[in-house]
């Protein structure tokens, strides 16, 4: 029962620095394992996707956010999730005219604290794992989206900005036929 009582109040808080540094060692290891930064970007996205698939269940159980009825709902909930898991409040903005695309703007990026990109990895999207998490989590709630970085403080931009684009709604699986 002890596990339950802990979670009912506040989710377990850990030091953000430990998290940031652990992520840093992950990226450093990937840079060693792969020769070019594109592969590292791809791996980070894939890892994020796998995290997102599980994280969504935790988010649903913890925050009980209910279903989304449009993309603005989704954007609000992504904002809420950033607060819950990273302790930052991103702003949502730059909606496309069709309402199917928006940006998540981070003033500070907790993943990239203490980080400076060396010259030979300018192509590296350091926090690319976040894009994967967003994609994986949305896919589990029937939303196919694309997520990618368009601005990064590590590359001299003022803010870190993730663009999210709605692709399509996924339908319930139909029952398997008689075989």
């Amino acid at each position: 029962m002890s596990r339950q009582s802990m979670r009912s109040n506040d989710p377990k808080k850990v030091s953000g620095e430990l998290f940031t540094l652990t992520y840093g060692s992950l990226v450093a290891q990937l840079l060693k394992d792969y020769e070019n930064v594109d592969d590292v970007n791809r791996q980070l996205e894939r890892m994020g996707y796998n995290i997102g698939m599980r994280l969504i269940e935790d988010f649903l159980a913890r925050a009980n956010p209910g279903r989304c009825y449009d993309l603005r709902d989704t954007a609000d909930k992504i904002q809420q999730a950033f607060k819950l898991y990273l302790g930052v409040s991103p702003s949502i903005g730059s909606w496309s005219p069709g309402g199917d695309e928006f940006s998540v703007v981070l003033e500070t990026n907790p993943l990239a604290e203490f980080v400076e990109l060396p010259d030979h990895c300018l192509g590296l999207r350091y926090s690319n794992i976040l894009a994967g998490v967003i994609r994986g989590a949305c896919e589990m709630v029937q939303l196919e989206v694309m997520a990618w970085f368009i601005a990064d403080q590590l590359k001299g931009d003022n803010v870190t900005e993730i663009r999210v684009k709605f692709v399509k709604r996924l339908e319930d699986a139909i029952p398997a036929g008689e075989d």
């Binding site: 269940e57 649903l60 209910g66 589990m140």
Partner: peptide
């Protein structure tokens, strides 16, 4: 005789 209860999460479990 019985009641069936279905609870579906937003992730479709």
């Amino acid at each position: 005789k019985y009641r069936l209860n279905l609870y579906e999460t937003p992730s479709r479990l």
